[in-house]
């Protein structure tokens, strides 16, 4: 039964991908890519990767669709018909695909428990997490402690993206004058009321996800994205300027940097106890307590940076002066 659901979702995904390939109106392409992410999130849940599914849904369906739509608002609607010959790309793609299929021939079968992947490094994580870190969610344990440095790299990557977008778009952000007031959708009464109602729970849910990461799916990254989603809705409905009063650009830039500093700061602390970098055992009374404190701190850093990057990116995109009037939406 399991594999049937698997196959169905995969075939559905393939269908969406081909649809994206064929469509020329960019608006539907973006929507389809949102669908693609959601369905892959569903598939990931089915493959027992709950954390990844959560992130994929939050990022794939949420943030990237928002960014793409705001790019469309600033650029063009339709894709010009391609003039270039399709032969070379087809050959390249076909050969790569063939090589990959050739590569799958010696792979362990899907879901085969005796595959080398499950024999060598993973068993220790599963068995040792209980007593070494004492945290039910093994993925968060591995993410924040065993391979904590990878996550520091991840935070730095998202920090780089934030800085890069600021570098590229900060120059052309127009000053929030009274003109921007019209974009606040006064006449959307229903939206304004519902948003006011929803923003509270969304922020609450974000904090829940942030600290629930140790026990169930969740963690710094997902929390950050949800936190940013709250501010994006607020900015969309109540206008960039009012959102700017709530969370000003300067504050976002400080939060951006602070998250990374918190994360690397936690790592540096262990130097003074003569332990290697990112060794949390020194932080608490016992080694296990230290791990808990360390992971919470680290996840907090991740959450802060991710939220700040998403908000600052949205501010940068929304701040550009759109060539088309707002009515054309």
């Amino acid at each position: 039964m399991e594999s049937v659901i698997n196959m169905a979702l995969l075939v559905f995904l393939a269908g969406t991908a081909f649809a994206i390939l064929r469509r020329t109106t960019l608006f539907s392409v973006v929507m389809l890519s949102g669908v693609f992410s959601l369905v892959s999130a569903a598939l990931l849940v089915h493959l027992d990767a709950v954390d990844v599914a959560f992130t994929e849904a939050a990022v794939g369906a949420g943030v990237s669709t928002v960014l793409m739509l705001s790019t469309l608002a600033l650029t063009a609607r339709h894709e010009a018909p391609g003039t270039r010959s399709r032969a070379i790309p087809l050959i390249v793609v076909f050969l790569t695909g063939l090589a990959l299929v050739y590569g799958t021939l010696d792979m362990p079968r899907f879901g085969d428990p005796s595959a080398p992947v499950h024999q060598h490094v993973a068993p220790r994580y599963i068995s040792a997490t209980a007593h070494e870190i004492g945290m039910p969610n093994i993925v968060t344990a591995v993410l924040a402690s065993y391979r904590g440095f990878d996550t520091l790299g991840e935070v730095t990557v998202i920090f780089t993206a934030g800085i890069a977008v600021l570098l590229l778009l900060a120059g052309t952000i127009r000053e929030p004058t009274t003109a921007t007031k019209i974009t606040a959708m006064e006449h959307h009464l229903v939206l304004r009321v519902v948003t006011k109602v929803l923003i509270g729970p969304i922020l609450l849910f974000a904090l829940y996800v942030q600290f629930h990461g140790d026990y169930g799916p969740g963690g710094g990254f997902q929390a950050g994205v949800i936190f940013a989603a709250a501010f994006i809705i607020y900015a969309l409905v109540f206008g960039l300027e009012t959102a700017g009063n709530a969370l000003p650009g300067r504050a976002v830039r400080i939060l951006l940097a602070l998250g990374v500093l918190i994360y690397s700061g936690t790592g540096v602390v262990s130097f003074f106890f003569n332990k290697n970098f990112l060794d949390y055992s020194v932080l608490g009374a016992t080694a296990q307590a230290g791990q808990h404190i360390g992971i919470i701190l680290v996840e907090f850093g991740v959450g802060m940076t991710v939220a700040a990057v998403m908000v600052s990116t949205f501010y940068a995109f929304a701040g550009q002066n759109p060539p088309i009037g707002d009515e054309e939406w």
Partner: peptide
């Protein structure tokens, strides 16, 4: 199921969104 690929992909998703934003 094996937790390690999940950790790797959590990082890879971040890389993906960073590249898309840029």
């Amino acid at each position: 199921s094996n937790p390690l690929p999940h950790v790797l992909i959590l990082t890879a998703i971040v890389v993906g969104i960073a590249t898309t934003a840029l």
